[in-house]
């Protein structure tokens, strides 16, 4: 049985409904919420602040420290073990690497910028939602950034190439490739590219092109969410 129509009736190049808000955690130095379909990510930024343990301090530049966490009740029924495992650790690292190319922390030697990403509800595409929220939160924290980072997943289900796979699509019985990407919208550079599954070179190129378009859409949402905090720009999502 071929996958001709998506489970939720979307077009293949269509993302799930997107919403974003900035300043959702007033106590933090910067914060943002990003949701795509049923996946919801909150990001809070603290710092630059004093870095402990001291041996991590870098006198040349500040450090970016990300923590990705799915909440225990966030999945589809089964409980996610709290405390972070191998997977959370890996995603924390790739999130840092996806965000670092736009950040300039040279002004803050020996200091740290902490980014906490929490996911109260998940339906695939969590690292992408986390990166997108974190980029907004970092901008809200007033850090020097070359650009924002927008992120979405693309992939293949059977022979169809599509953006923003839902959990149901990721766990489809046939062949599936799931490719989270993060893009710097100004230059089109890609700062995150991972894959689960198999895909051909041509298919990957089509998928990346779809992803690029979706990232630009997400970028517009990020932009207006940041501006909306100051009462300008329309509500999107």
């Amino acid at each position: 049985m071929a996958y001709n129509k998506r489970f939720d009736g979307r077009k293949f190049d269509e993302t799930r409904p997107i919403a974003a808000r900035v300043g959702v955690i007033p106590e933090a130095d910067g914060s943002a919420m990003f949701s795509i379909g049923n996946t919801v990510a909150y990001a809070a930024v603290y710092g630059p602040r004093e870095l402990h343990p001291k041996f991590l301090q870098n006198p040349q530049s500040g450090l970016l420290r990300c923590r990705y966490n799915m909440m225990p009740f966030s999945g589809a029924g089964s409980r996610v073990k709290p405390g972070g495992g191998r997977r959370a650790k890996e995603i924390s690292v790739v999130t840092e690497k996806a965000l670092l190319p736009v950040l300039n922390l040279d002004e803050f030697p020996n200091a740290v910028v902490d980014v906490f990403i929490e996911l109260p509800q998940t339906d695939a595409g969590t690292r992408c939602a986390g990166i997108t929220a974190a980029a907004m939160a970092l901008a809200d924290a007033g850090l020097t950034m070359k650009d924002l980072v927008s992120s979405v997943s693309v992939g293949r289900v059977d022979d169809k190439i599509m953006v923003d796979l839902s959990y149901k699509e990721e766990s489809y019985e046939g062949e599936v490739a799931d490719i989270p990407i993060a893009m710097i919208p100004g230059t089109g550079e890609i700062s995150l590219l991972q894959m689960d599954g198999k895909i051909s070179r041509e298919e990957l190129q089509t998928a990346l092109e779809l992803g690029r378009k979706a990232c630009l859409q997400i970028y517009e949402v990020q932009k207006s969410a940041l501006k909306e905090k100051f009462g300008v720009g329309g509500k999107i999502g």
Binding site: P48, A141, G142, T144, M145
Partner: peptide, 26 residues
């Protein structure tokens, strides 16, 4: 000329700068 911070644009003759609205004290 591209912004590198969140803030308000200030154009002063030929000079463009951003008045930051957030960020820790440096």
């Amino acid at each position: 000329v591209v912004a590198s911070r969140l803030g308000l644009v200030q154009v002063d003759g030929r000079l463009i700068r951003i008045i930051p609205v957030s960020g820790k004290y440096l």
